[in-house]
């Protein structure tokens, strides 16, 4: 039997909001170490990797490894039925073809359960090599979301240029050209407002805005976002999920033909 409980539905609701527009469906691979989901979007230009550790749940039981193919749009609809402060429990029998979501109100007066059919998804799993990235930028997640949204008005592509001075986001098209330069911060009082750049060597990479803007749907999950870049390999956009895990988005670059 599989059973995972969170005392607060907020995080799970935000996780679904962070992936449901990019992915139509995904397989939740459950083991005693937690829940993993890895899936590419339909165009195979981006990949989502979600990791939720079992010790981040308020109760976690996984007798046998279990893969649950979920329609993420349906799962998001079910989670819309939960209040943020409801306790949420995900339950499935070992060789089940359905999964149950149970929501309990804080005052225990209201208990709801929603049963959803599971899907047979034969999604292939991709190996993501450990990479020592040339540039790693940590910055406020809201700032990154704002830049992606603003620059998408100028072009379908954003050029990210990272040097020891700072990181520059550029876009140019019919409207005109835009450059947003962020310098590394040194004396911020709040860690989450810092802009930290670890640079082995400078990089210049081009990415499609529409995917970056899909990734920033994860902004409510974390104050900070981490961008990892190396020449001619996918960008990694990572949001940590406090005390539970992280969501990593990989975006294939646009390269000179």
């Amino acid at each position: 039997m599989f059973e995972a409980r969170l005392n607060n539905a907020t995080t799970l609701k935000k996780i679904l909001d962070a992936i449901k527009d990019l992915l139509n469906e995904g397989t939740f691979d459950c083991s005693d170490s937690g829940i993993q989901l890895q899936a590419m979007d339909n165009s195979h230009v981006s990949l989502v990797s979600l990791t939720l550790r079992s010790d981040g749940f308020d109760k976690f039981r996984c007798d046998r490894n279990l893969s649950m193919g979920m329609n993420l749009g349906s799962m998001a609809k079910i989670l819309k039925c939960a209040n943020n402060d409801d306790t949420v429990t995900i339950k499935a029998q070992d060789n089940a073809d359905t999964v149950t979501f149970m929501f309990e109100s804080q005052n225990q007066e209201k208990v709801s359960d929603y049963e959803m059919k599971l899907m047979n998804l034969d999604q292939e799993h991709l190996g993501i090599p450990e990479t020592d990235y040339s540039c790693v930028v940590r910055m406020p997640a809201m700032e990154f979301a704002r830049i992606c949204r603003d620059l998408a008005q100028f072009s379908e592509s954003v050029v990210i240029c990272c040097t020891k001075e700072g990181v520059k986001f550029s876009a140019s098209g019919d409207v005109g050209s835009a450059n947003v330069k962020l310098a590394q911060t040194f004396n911020v009082d709040k860690e989450e407002e810092a802009i930290v750049i670890e640079m082995q060597e400078p990089v210049v990479l081009t990415f499609a805005c529409r995917y970056l803007n899909a990734f920033t749907k994860a902004t409510p999950l974390s104050n900070q976002v981490q961008l990892s870049m190396s020449a001619d390999v996918p960008l990694v956009v990572e949001y940590r999920i406090a005390e539970l895990g992280h969501i990593r988005y990989y975006l294939a670059p646009k390269i000179e033909d």
Binding site: S46, L47, L126, G127, A208, K254, I255, D257
Partner: peptide, 14 residues
């Protein structure tokens, strides 16, 4: 011109 690459050309199927 810039060409959009695919994830599959960077990560191998396991």
């Amino acid at each position: 011109t810039v060409k959009q690459t695919k994830i599959g050309s960077f990560f191998e199927k396991e």
